[in-house]
């Protein structure tokens, strides 16, 4: 199970929302969103509405996975 952690602050809430709409499971661990999936986690940047500074600093942690894309279009975490 791949897990992506995102701190729950106002700028990041749409990241978790878009992840959930894309089929990932979104829970909470302490003050973090825990976004999990059996396969790849893909989040469309434009759907999040995040400005670039927020987008490129929204990832707090990645467990059992690897970021294979993090650019102006999308963030994708594949299983390790």
């Amino acid at each position: 199970m791949t897990a992506l952690y995102v701190l729950d602050v106002p700028e990041n809430t749409t990241v978790a929302k878009v992840a959930a709409e894309s089929g990932a499971t979104v829970g909470k661990v302490g003050p973090y969103f825990e976004i999990t999936a059996d396969g790849p986690i893909v989040i469309d940047r434009r759907a999040t509405g995040c400005r670039h500074a927020v987008w490129y600093s929204c990832v707090a942690g990645v467990a059992d996975g690897k970021i294979v894309q993090h650019d102006k279009n999308a963030l994708q975490v594949d299983p390790a």
């Binding site: 897990a3 952690y5 661990v29 302490g30 990832v59 707090a60 942690g61 990645v62 467990a63 970021i67």
Partner: peptide
Amino acid sequence: LARKAELI
């Protein structure tokens, strides 16, 4: 990011 996930 992997180490931070463990700490989280």
